[in-house]
Amino acid sequence: MIDIQEKLKEIGPYVEAADDDVLVCRCEEVTKGEIRQAVHAGMFTMEEIRRYLRSGMGLCQGQTCGKLVKGIVARELKVSPLEIEPATSRAPMRPTEMRIMAQDGGGANE
């Protein structure tokens, strides 16, 4: 059980940092500062962060930034990155054109 209000008190308010403008998620252009602010708004999980900011939702599906975002969230929450669950993995593992996706032999039965 996680008491969100208590945890927010524990981590204190968001304080601006010099590198807040560094891009973290290139696909969706999300900065470090946006991620840090989201944590202080109560977004503690990778799922909440990505739903709130779209980080990791672009073409690379978080392959590049997943670990970086995890590190930032962990630091803000003052926990080890190992305590932050990675976001879920979804098919398709590589972005695939709709016309190719549609060609799976299933059309004949519809």
Partner: peptide
């Protein structure tokens, strides 16, 4: 041949050329 999904029943979907094979 890009495996794009691993589903129940140990089924994989694979993108080969312009189609998806199961």
């Amino acid at each position: 041949a890009t495996v794009i999904g691993l589903y129940d029943g140990k089924e994989v979907t694979v993108k080969i050329g312009e189609e998806i094979l199961h």
